[in-house]
Amino acid sequence: MNYRITLLITTAIMALSIAGCGAPDQSSSIESNPLGERSLAESPADAARVARLWSQSCALCHVTGVAGAPRAGNAEDWAPRLATGKALLLKHTIEGYNSMPPLGYCMSCTESDFSALIDLMAEGVAK
């Protein structure tokens, strides 16, 4: 790396995270859910509930992988994370880790929901 490039790169520290990565549109994940149309399932971890929580919270970042989020169903993204153990992934999800905010924007999720959501996004990835 030449000196000029090193200098230019170093300048980045000044800007840090006033963002600007032009995230791809993630809006396709949301569907209209008129008030009065109840979809809450009784079991906290059943498929319908998990799918709704995924669509409303996780999909914001985990569809396109913005801010370094592991993309749902992407083995390359998930395999190294799964290798650290499910307990650590769950801890990071609940407490926040790097760009991942605590609770992953899911304010009503239980620990069981988060566990199911991790499983959903890592589905099909060899463990």
Partner: peptide, 21 residues
């Protein structure tokens, strides 16, 4: 080419400090 967007997109600080949480 240096641009504002490349300047502003790094995630290193999150990684640096995330490790110290």
């Amino acid at each position: 080419k240096m641009s504002r967007r490349t300047l502003l997109s790094s995630s290193v600080i999150a990684a640096l400090y995330g490790a110290a949480r």
